[in-house]
Design a protein around this nucleic acid. Sequence first.
DNA 1: CGAGTCGATGACACCGCGGTGACAGATCGA
DNA 2: TCGATCTGTCACCGCGGTGTCATCGACTCG
Lengths: 236, 236
Amino acid sequence: MNRVDAAESGRPLKVLVADDDADLLALIGFTLNQAGFEVRTVNDGSAALRAFVAESPDCVLLDINMSPLDGLQVCREIRDRSRVPIMMLTVRDQEEDLLAAFDSGADDYVRKPFSPRALIARVRALARRVEPLRTGSIAAGNLNLDLEQHTLQLGAAAPLRLTPLELKALHLLMTSPGRTVTAERLLLHVWGRSTSRERRTLKQLIYRLRQKLEVDPSAPLVLQTTPGAGYKLVVE
Amino acid sequence: MNRVDAAESGRPLKVLVADDDADLLALIGFTLNQAGFEVRTVNDGSAALRAFVAESPDCVLLDINMSPLDGLQVCREIRDRSRVPIMMLTVRDQEEDLLAAFDSGADDYVRKPFSPRALIARVRALARRVEPLRTGSIAAGNLNLDLEQHTLQLGAAAPLRLTPLELKALHLLMTSPGRTVTAERLLLHVWGRSTSRERRTLKQLIYRLRQKLEVDPSAPLVLQTTPGAGYKLVVE
DNA sequence: CGAGTCGATGACACCGCGGTGACAGATCGA
DNA sequence: TCGATCTGTCACCGCGGTGTCATCGACTCG
C-alpha cells in the first residue's frame, strides 16, 4: 500500500476523523486509508476530543453537525491546545458557517458532498505543513540512516558520516533489509547506468562502506555479498 | 483601519496577488486591503515570480489561467524556493485542476466567484500558519534573531549587527535549528536563484557569519557544514 | 568629496571524494 | 588441474567542494 510517509521516514501520518454519519465516516476512513493514511474514526464531538488527547494525530477532520459537542466547539478546544491542522466538513453551504469555522481556528472548510480525490489532496496539503517537524531518516534494525545529516547511526555508537554515494547505496539497501539487492539495481540507483566501469567502482564503494560500518571489515556481518547476485543488508 | 499584524510586530502581512483579469485583480486587492493586508498586485505569471523574489510576501494568491507563465508553473517555481502559503484561484471547476494545483504545492484552491469575506477568512487561515515565523524575532536555543533590528543576540552577549543577506540566511537556518539546510534552499531563499555565481558568494556569506558568531571561526560549533549537503545551525 | 559598509569576485590552499589500475584470493566449470 | 570470472584489497591521482584572504565596485552618509 502506498503509505503517506513523513519525509520518507516509515511512519504514516495519523488522521483523526469525527462525523456522526456512520456511513460517511466509514467512507472517509476507507478513502484516507487507501491513500496511505493511518485513520482513527469517532462519531461524536466529545469522543473526538478524547481521541485527540490520547492519540495526538497529525491532522483532524471534523464534521460541524455533531452532538453533544459540535464541530466548531471541538475545533476551538483543540486549537486551544495545539496547532494541528484542522479541516471542517459540512453539509450546509452558509457563509456564516464558513466564517465561523475559520474563526474557530480551522485551516480548511469543505462542503459535502466532496470527491474522495479532492479530499485526499486537501488533507495532503494540510499534512505537508506539519511534515517538516518530523525527521527525514529511515531505520532498519539497529541501523538508522539520516538522509539530511548524511549520517548513519549504528545502535548507540556515534553517528558515522557518509559520503553522497555511500548514502545513496545504503539508502537502497535499507529499503529492503535482509533481502539481496542486485548489483544491477545498485548501479542504476547510484550512478543511473550500469557499465563495467561503475561495476568496478561499486566494489570500491562496498569496500569503503564495510570499512566504516563493519566491526571486522574482512568478515562482513552487516553488509554481506550474495555471490553472482549482489549485496544484502543483515540486521538484528 | 483594522490592520492584520504579524504577532504584535506592527507590520501588516504582505500578500502577493496575480491575476490577468484586471477588474478582479483590483477587487481582490481592494478587499484584502480593506481587511488590513498589505497587497501587491501583478497581472501575469512572470511578474508574479519577480515580485515574489523582490518582495518576499507572506502569502501568495495565483490565478491559474495566466500567460506567459500559468499559475501552476508559478506555484511550482515558488514552492521550489519557499514554503510560503499559496492559494490558487480559478474559474474552472474541474477536479483535474484542483488535483494539479495541490500537486504543485498549493495550500488552498478557491473557485471563482467567491465572496470577499470567504476569501479573507481563507487568507487569514493561511496567514496564521506562517505568522509565528514573523514575530519580529525568532529564537533557537541561546540564539535570538531580531528581524527588525537586524541583530542577533547570542546568550547574554551584546547583540551583533547583521547585514541584510546575513539576516536572510540566518533566518532560514533558524527556522529549522539542528537540521541541515540544503545549499540549494539557502541560495534560492537568499538570492532567488541558484547558479555557480551565488554558490561562491554563499561561501563568503557563511564565512562572514562565522567570523561574527563563532568563538573560533576556524572550528565552527554553531554554524556547521554538512559536507555535500549544506549547512546547519547547532544550538544547545 | 572622503570614509565606511556591503556584496561580489578572483585567487589559492586544502582535503575529501570518487575513479582507476594492479593484484591477490575465491569460486566454479571445462 | 587449469583457466576464467568474480570479488576483495590497496595504493594512487585528479577533480571539485570548501575555507580563506585580498580586493574591487556600488552605495550611503556625513
